[in-house]
Amino acid sequence: MTAHGVAIHLENCGKTFANGARALEPTTIDIARGETVVFLGPSGCGKTTMLRIIAGLETPDAGGRVRFGDEDVTDTPIERRNVGMVFQSYALFPNMNVAENIGYGLKIRGIGAAERAQRVAELVTLTGIEGLETRSIDQLSGGQRQRVALARAVAIRPRVLLLDEPLTALDALLRERLRSELNSLLRALGITSVYVTHDQAEAMTLGDRIVVMRKGAIAQIGSPRDIYFAPANRYVAEFVGAANVVEAECRDGALILPGGSLPVAHATPGRAVAMVRPESWSIVPATAATLTGRVETVIFVGDRLRVTIAGAADRPLLVDAPNGLAVAPGQTVGLTVPPGAVRLLAGEAA
């Protein structure tokens, strides 16, 4: 679909609250027109503050600028920024029914009742909440509220769509279903979107790019694949997906581990921190590998086995094995990994 909305440029946007707490270090980031960017991080990492600065609900510290396209909106209040926002707890108006909630932004813009009704009907269809138009907010389930909130935010044809943990309040099953619905909706709308979440699966599914945040600063920006396969540092590696992070001496193109050696591409001699994803490992007979260990636990999780192997590295290694593999605790096995799947992490020994 064609791209809608505007590009967002944040320049040196930091936020220090009145009590002196630094929520966000001065940060610069560009978000392209029509792109979906996900801010990912644990609570308190500054991702929501970033979103609220883009929305206009917080002003950045002196020196920070927010631009929508060529327009500087730093001093423009949220009501004149023309953004659509979906709040974590939805912020639906209890004094209005579903249709009135969705149409409120249009009413404020002075759009006549007939055109409004038509647009509301469009959105009701788009978000799959037909038949609920005259319900009061009290009578809706969590998932329905989420859809109403989304429809209401999109109704005004905003320049930017901002979503603050929109799925967090829902139960796991519903969250997964709405995640993919939301994904196709965002693709269909093609609008510049900023999405905040602490859920990495959401970030992977929805983001064109993911911004991993830590303690008020950006830890890494990249595509979901970059973030997953080439984490910039240990924090990103461990926050996104499961990761085996090992610290070891690197010599002769291999990591020297307690259970043997592990060949690494582009290795430089010295102390190194390396990461291997659990699914990258292959379990082979002990004689067929340079690295061996003892099977500690085998957990059958359906589509695969989750095996922990002790003695190979300084910490037990997490390995995902095919669910038909015959391994038993106590067995000594060999571990191999494709050379590209061992990722050296920059200077983060700790």
Binding site: A55, E79, R80, M85, P94
Partner: peptide
């Protein structure tokens, strides 16, 4: 009723 949130919600929709 968490009026601050409702207020922000209305503001995001363009209400003065």
């Amino acid at each position: 009723v968490n009026i601050n949130l409702l207020d922000e919600g209305a503001a995001s929709l363009g209400a003065s």
